[in-house]
Nucleic acid binder design. Sequence first.
DNA 1: GGAAACTAGGAATCCGTTTTCCTAACGGTA
DNA 2: TACCGTTAGGAAAACGGATTCCTAGTTTCC
Lengths: 340, 340
Amino acid sequence: MTDAPGVVRITDVAALAGVSPSTVSKALNDTGSLRPATRAKVREAAERLGFVPDATARSLSARRSFTVGLLSTDSAGRFSLPVVLGAENALVGGQISALLATARHDAVREQHHVRSLVARRVDGIIVTGRTTEPRRPIRVPMPVVYAFAPSQDPQDASVVPDDDAGMTAVAEHLTSLGRRRVAYVGGRGDQAASTQRHDSLRTALRGHDGTLVGDPLYGEWSERWGRLAVDLVLGDHRAGDPLPVDAIAFASDQLARGGCDRLRDRGVRVPEDVAVTGYDDWDVMTLASRPPLTTVDPQLERLGQRSAELLLAAIDGRPSSGVELSPPRLVVRASTMGDA
Amino acid sequence: MTDAPGVVRITDVAALAGVSPSTVSKALNDTGSLRPATRAKVREAAERLGFVPDATARSLSARRSFTVGLLSTDSAGRFSLPVVLGAENALVGGQISALLATARHDAVREQHHVRSLVARRVDGIIVTGRTTEPRRPIRVPMPVVYAFAPSQDPQDASVVPDDDAGMTAVAEHLTSLGRRRVAYVGGRGDQAASTQRHDSLRTALRGHDGTLVGDPLYGEWSERWGRLAVDLVLGDHRAGDPLPVDAIAFASDQLARGGCDRLRDRGVRVPEDVAVTGYDDWDVMTLASRPPLTTVDPQLERLGQRSAELLLAAIDGRPSSGVELSPPRLVVRASTMGDA
DNA sequence: GGAAACTAGGAATCCGTTTTCCTAACGGTA
DNA sequence: TACCGTTAGGAAAACGGATTCCTAGTTTCC
């Protein structure tokens, strides 16, 4: 398309400034020894021609691409998206571009993308997944950081949300409000996001005079299941009867929201009769819920950002190893404190 | 990091196969004239060494990068994300990688990203936005396609969702079910997504023996406003009274969901008394809603894909111009047909 | 059997920068 | 004034492939 016009080469700048290409390079990169006047002259010529050095050629000579790959196992959905954005953001600060590669849960696709990233000689790769389940590591000749979904190899560098801290914060919050009998509602029972949060909650409650009531309830990650689970928790309770619990901790905002709806339907007041907490701080759910949800913000953007920092360090020759926990943040709203 | 080991150059393959680098290039790219035996020998050597040609070097000599930029005005949110994914998907098919650049509504950031994309000599750029409001075009020496948010310059190539067709489908669906008195609830009144859908709905209803009842209601894009708007539509209606409308078309699924909740609260049955439609086909809303929502799927992934196709064509020397409408799809669920 | 027409593969050039050498010119000192 | 150390800037060699010539063999055909 636009070939001859528009594209300015270093030789064009050199010609206009009346110097050699190497001098232009030195002037623009502040290297070598040149007279200030020469630098200024070159700078002006470059400015006038709108010269933007070809990053491709620069990469070739620098033997690195100033590019990292963002390999997303799933289609960059609810969870990996913020991670990717946080990472991209941190990278831009380091003058590095991000190549997006979404694998859509297809191993063949993923392999193809990995190959493509290797071909492009990316300086490093950030791998993200849809869930926090450990995933099979990729084998490439450059640094890799696993974000959100850790690598199955503990030697690899991974950054994952600290769900334990999140659920502990929930337990402390509820008990500090005088809630003692807490039920737990998880999502899919085969996922760590369900089971680990349960364990954390139980442990934390024990340490704060609280009790986890009943067995954990597992189902699916939907509002529908949240509603159903509330029925299971309440049993054949009728308005006026003493309630079996004074709080329900849900493993996601979607569940919590469904739960709130069902509690309302059954005439149970939130938070007066039962306090409710969610998880994820997904504004679409937390703010639309009646009442708005107290929840845990896993700060995924920050997690992505941190992953990028680790990757940049590794690229810079300071590799890290092992799983790093990224801290969450408790967000208090009306579903636990009526006046909050 | 991993420098000497891992990185295989074409000369390494040449040495192993006992031929010259140029022969390797020809063998691997199926060019030149070589004996099949030679090709096979080279292929095997390349395979054994795990040779992946350096895309950077290839780009330099090909004078194109086989890369396109995905410039997202906002942080790749609800709407631009599917567009970006669709585009990335289509590009991969063409052996092209996608550079992600999110501007976060900051003109300075955007300028920086544009410069970076130009420096990387991307073959083209797809620009997306958060809303369908026309946006200021970017000036770069390569083809550009605007997706979702069209360019203000009608000469530029843009692909936007065909909201008119979407709302027309809603009108036809409602009237075919015998609904005649339809109210419309929009989001922000200063956005085309609100106002244009209103106009389309009114026009389409007229053509099908329907009436748009009352003035359009504008507020914000939240469930809260959806709930409020229902109160405005129903006024002081009480259970048993004749209803002022037999259908409400909302401009988004969030609005529709809030509306459904409010209708339930007030004892109005959906869809028996009032049919409800949403817009966007956001499963989180449509499926969790009680009842599930009939809505319009703007097929944004497809839009993104189409944008990529147009861009690839432009890169290939077949530029297009003007605004192309991307077709939506009506998705019928229980909020209009109880047994669907 | 000799010249023309192919064929297979190698050598050289190019892509646009960066970087490493060099080489003049210049200033300072003895 | 001659010599040495600096300094400014140019020439050339990477970087890793693709591509465009070439050239030495090999066929083909009369």
